[in-house]
């Protein structure tokens, strides 16, 4: 009989001791389980925390100066007016919507096209290289994008279209489109990749070309994932702050053409929060815009998640 590492002899007496024996390792294991659980739910805590803390600062506005009809119906965002401050967010909403809308028009076809090329056509090194470049695109900080809009796109637009100012929907829409492209490309490519190869092989065995396979088999099968990709792209554009602040011209305006300067919801907060007195109506109104942004992005993300879940169920 070799020496027993536990120092006990085999048999029932040792067993009885072992059953309830809780050594250091046992306690450490329990402690770690508790600790990582707390960390695990931290994401939930932070999401709730974000909502609670911005509501805490913004609630005062919602219960006093807030007027639903004015907020969603009036384009007059005049929080610092001497006579009567008005808080109409319509122009800001229109600004965000027009910039995000243009960004999507520019970006969705290219992003999905790029995803299809990377996922279905490219192979080996080309594919790797493209994926890495898309990743680098995602890495460029938004303030750098804003600077590019300000210093490179601005003169370019003025010159090309002969307009007085190049900081407008066109400028920020293109910038935002480029910024939202990587997330759409990546998620869309993941969705394409999730389509089992057996589908492709079956269609190819019938003599279909790559494109026929992609169009008839892969895209329909990946449809939900592609929708989710676009939704997340919308969310990304909608929430972008610095680039829009710097490239959109930042003037409260109901836009009529892509050459109009506008002001976005996010940019309004970024530009004005520093100048407001804590606890003032204006300060609280900015937090209310934050609540609006939070709720809308939450809904977008939730929808995207449900859409993706839709694929898994099938």
């Amino acid at each position: 009989m070799p020496t027993r590492t536990t120092g006990e002899t085999s048999g029932s007496s040792g067993v009885a001791l072992d059953i309830d024996r809780r050594d250091l390792a046992w306690y450490v294991d329990k402690a770690v389980a508790g600790l990582v659980f707390v960390a695990g739910i931290s994401a939930i805590i932070f999401i709730i925390g974000i909502f609670v803390f911005i509501t805490r600062e913004g609630i005062g506005f919602l219960t006093s100066a807030f007027d639903f009809k004015e907020f969603f119906g009036s384009p007059a965002w005049r929080p610092t007016s001497e006579r009567k401050a008005t808080y109409g967010a319509l122009a800001l909403i229109a600004g965000t919507a027009s910039v995000t809308g243009l960004a999507m028009i520019v970006s969705v076809p290219f992003s999905l096209g790029a995803a299809i090329f990377i996922g279905e056509f490219a192979t080996g090194k080309t594919r790797e290289a493209l994926k890495i470049l898309v990743e680098l695109l995602a890495a460029i900080p938004s303030v750098v994008w804003g600077f590019i809009g300000l210093s490179i796109m601005n003169p370019l637009i003025i010159e090309t279209f002969d307009v007085p100012i190049g900081l407008n929907i066109l400028n920020s829409g293109i910038i935002l489109g480029l910024m939202a492209a990587p997330i759409m490309t990546t998620i869309a490519e993941d969705a394409l990749k999730a389509v089992p190869d057996s589908y492709r092989e079956a269609a190819e065995a019938l003599g279909a070309t790559r494109w026929q396979v992609t169009r008839r088999v892969v895209i329909p099968a990946a449809k939900n994932g592609l929708v989710a990709a676009v939704l997340l792209g919308v969310g990304r554009g909608f929430g972008e702050t610095m680039a829009v602040l710097m490239a959109s011209g930042h003037s409260v305006n109901m836009p009529t053409s892509v050459f109009d300067s506008v002001r976005a919801l996010t940019a309004t907060i970024a530009a004005e929060l520093g100048e407001t007195a804590m606890g003032s109506d204006h300060y609280r109104a900015l937090f209310t815009l934050g609540i609006l942004l939070f709720v809308v992005t939450f809904v977008i993300n939730l929808t995207a998640d449900l859409v993706v879940r839709g694929i898994r169920k099938r």
């Binding site: 739910i41 939930i44 932070f46 929430g239 702050t241 996010t266 934050g290 992005t297 998640d305």
Partner: peptide, 28 residues
């Protein structure tokens, strides 16, 4: 729910994170 919260945490606009930072860390 945790996974959804993670996706949302990544998706919340950076300026909203800023407001949270002001409300929670700077003030509270």
């Amino acid at each position: 729910v945790i996974n959804l919260a993670i996706i949302n945490l990544a998706g919340v606009p950076s300026i909203v994170h800023a407001l949270f930072g002001v409300g929670a860390f700077v003030l509270f």
